[in-house]
């Protein structure tokens, strides 16, 4: 474990917590007898969260952590896997099933056919992998899928008029975690002999590059202190 990877994992955890906070806000808001102004805005406007991206992430964790009970790495590793699995599936459940949260989900805008991402990633994993075993192919699939999982969310943000802060922070943290992982891979490449994982590195690089324009608009909205807005 190195500081870059720990920072990456903590940033990833933060992104999940921000999303859970947002869902909690929507839930508690509708509980009020009189909707406060913020609640009114929250309930009226769509949450800006893409269910498609959440479902892809649940699939990413389900296929990546198949070894959670067979290969014990460390207590930290197991706990984090359980947190990511538990949170990703519960977020999908909330947006799909929860009587209040689902109202804030705008399915007419979240129209990305994520199935078109799953199939090519699966085919690519069958062709390009480190070892042709069931677990390894699914693990590689999870890497390819995670690289593109943010696309439905980014497209939804382009369609969302006013992106609220929590959603913007969520996407930022999600992109930042993988950027920190790239630093971790560089560090491990120079400090650990034979540490070479081209598949992981290229997927991680593609994933981070997909956030490039979001990062640009996110930082310029911070600098100019204006609302985050993505050009359509």
């Amino acid at each position: 474990m190195n500081i870059f990877r720990l920072a990456g994992d903590m940033t990833h955890l933060m992104s999940v917590l921000v999303l859970l906070l947002k869902i909690h806000t929507i839930k508690s808001c509708a509980g009020k007898s009189y909707p406060c102004s913020l609640c009114f805005i929250l309930l009226e406007s769509s949450s800006g969260i893409s269910l498609k991206t959440q479902e892809l992430y649940a699939l990413v964790f389900a296929t990546r952590y198949l070894d959670i009970f067979t290969d014990f790495i460390s207590v930290y590793n197991t706990i984090m896997k359980l947190i990511f699995l538990g949170s990703s599936f519960s977020i999908v459940w909330y947006i799909r099933r929860h009587k209040i949260v689902r109202r804030s989900y705008d399915k007419d805008q979240d129209t990305f056919r994520h199935f078109f991402l799953v199939l090519p990633c699966l085919l690519l994993a069958l062709i390009i992998n480190e070892k042709f075993t069931f677990k390894e192919v699914l693990w590689t699939f999870s890497l390819y899928l995670e690289a593109v999982a943010i696309l439905p969310q980014l497209i939804l943000l382009q369609r969302t008029r006013n992106i609220d802060n929590l959603t913007g922070q969520y996407v930022f943290l999600l992109g930042a975690y993988r950027a920190l992982y790239i630093l971790n891979w560089i560090y491990r490449y120079f400090t650990e002999p034979h540490y070479v994982h081209w598949i992981t590195w290229i997927s991680g690089l593609v994933q981070t590059l997909l956030y490039a324009d979001f990062f640009y608009y996110y930082f310029s909205s911070l600098k100019n202190n204006v609302k985050l807005k993505l050009p359509a």
Binding site: R5, H12, D71, I73, F84, K131, T200
Partner: peptide, 10 residues
């Protein structure tokens, strides 16, 4: 060896 095969990152 199997340790190498196990992916130690999240």
């Amino acid at each position: 060896d199997d340790k190498e095969a196990a992916h130690d990152e999240l």
